[in-house]
């Protein structure tokens, strides 16, 4: 009476209990694996067989700069996200639930709000004549409007905004799993709050930080919408470059080659991340 008496899981040749996965497998196989593999093949066949697309990609200063810029942005975003998320997660992990649930509500609201809506808000907020520049000038902090958009600053703000929930929520779990008694013991052993933080709390939350950080880094690497709207032309990121190469330049070979590079890096980091969290991926929100 295992698994699949409901569906005919024992169709000849199918392993026991696997039948239910068939529709999903067909869907993903036919409409995900096949298109992606076909695309990757194109990188070595379009316009003619060979590795010329990869040569073009790595031989051109422009493209190499895009790669470096992508890694730079992802690294900066990840670092800022970790630094901002940690204290928030810490507070959320120990706060009385009455206050905590308000903050959780805000996090979920921001996370579930349409991506374009949030990015649009930042476009308006960060523009030369936007609220932030006016406020800063009104307070006399700056004379000239600061360039906050169409550059790395804008992308970082916008991306950190989007990534924060993905870092905060799993970190809360990590911090809640740490027994407060451990830190009381540390204090009684003579550790100052700073020593207890550096020697106990931080090392114990490191697996969560690493897993969350890696996830944010991976997501940032391939992000398209926010960099495209808040970033400048001089620091384009990989995803936007791929889209443009295909859409505007109609250079499918080169675009596919870049997509392949992105895919390999992403999947490698993903596997690493899975190792870190032991196969469990936190599903945010609900």
């Amino acid at each position: 009476m295992h698994g699949n008496s409901l569906r005919r899981g024992s169709i000849a040749g199918l392993p026991a209990g696997s039948g239910g996965a068939l529709p999903a497998l067909v869907l993903v196989g036919l409409f995900f694996v096949v298109p992606v593999v076909a695309l990757l093949l194109r990188s070595v066949t379009d316009p003619e067989p060979g590795l010329q697309n990869y040569a073009a990609l790595f031989g051109s200063g422009t493209y190499v700069r895009v790669f470096l810029n992508t890694f730079l942005v992802a690294a900066v975003v990840t670092a800022v996200t970790i630094v901002v998320a940690f204290p928030v997660a810490w507070m959320l992990a120990i706060m009385p639930p009455a206050f905590g649930s308000i903050v959780f509500g805000i996090i979920i609201l921001s996370m579930w709000t349409n991506l374009l809506t949030r990015t649009y808000a930042w476009m308006v907020l960060l523009q030369r004549t936007g609220v932030i520049n006016r406020t800063l000038m009104g307070m006399g902090i700056t004379q000239e409007p600061l360039p906050l958009i169409n550059n790395l600053t804008g992308v970082t703000i916008g991306m950190v905004y989007i990534m924060l929930p993905f870092m905060i929520l799993p970190l809360v779990g990590t911090l809640r799993a740490i027994d407060p008694m451990t830190l009381r013991a540390a204090a009684l052993c003579g550790a100052t709050p700073f020593q207890a933080f550096r020697r106990i709390l931080l090392p114990l939350s490191l697996p969560g930080i690493a897993a969350g950080g890696l996830m944010v880094f991976v997501m940032s690497l391939g992000y398209f919408v926010t960099p495209a709207l808040l970033g400048g032309t001089s620091n384009m990121m990989l995803a936007e470059m791929i889209a443009q190469t295909v859409q505007s330049l109609l250079n499918w070979g080169l675009g596919s080659a870049a997509a392949f590079v992105l895919l390999v890096v992403t999947m490698a980091l993903y596997v690493l991340q899975l190792r870190l969290v032991g196969g469990k991926r936190p599903a945010g929100g609900l």
Partner: peptide, 16 residues
């Protein structure tokens, strides 16, 4: 599909 950068899937699906 959740992990792969959407842009890769987007152009792949578009071509297909």
């Amino acid at each position: 599909p959740m992990v792969l950068p959407v842009v890769v899937f987007a152009i792949a699906a578009y071509a297909f």
